[in-house]
């Protein structure tokens, strides 16, 4: 199963690129006008990735979600358990998500931090 999932390597490659470029970038993402000189995408993505709360499962989000999604999209979700279940199932069909043995950890992380009522 792991061999059929190239996403992990790609996600890591993107993250490493971002981490190298980020330097001292801010962790906040304020309103940004369209015409402003936007920082490099990798820098911006690495900066917003820092918004993911620490804890078990964070690394799985970085590996399984950030190849295609910004951390900003994840941190603004307030889904119930069924909502996250559906989302992760869909992403697994498309080559994202987590390996079977890591799935429970990923789901716990998403439910803990990005559910209705979560801080």
């Amino acid at each position: 199963m792991p061999g059929s999932r190239p996403r992990t390597a790609l996600a890591l490659a993107l993250l490493v690129t971002g981490a190298v470029a980020v330097g001292g970038a801010t962790t906040h993402a304020p309103a940004r006008p369209a015409h402003a000189a936007a920082p490099a995408v990798a820098t911006r993505r690495a900066a917003t990735a820092k918004q993911l709360p620490p804890g078990p499962g964070r690394e799985l989000v970085e590996r399984g979600c950030l190849a295609c999604h910004s951390a900003m999209l994840i941190t603004q979700q307030r889904k119930d358990s069924t909502g996250w279940e559906k989302t992760v199932q869909q992403m697994e069909k498309w080559g994202g998500g987590a390996r079977p043995e890591e799935r429970a950890t990923l789901m716990d992380y998403l439910r803990r931090h990005f559910a209705a009522g979560a801080k």
Partner: peptide
């Protein structure tokens, strides 16, 4: 006049959702 610095709210940085 041209957009000011606070005219757009960034909802997602990549892909852009403003």
């Amino acid at each position: 006049a041209p957009a000011g610095a606070t005219d757009l709210i960034e909802r997602n940085d990549w892909p852009e959702h403003w």
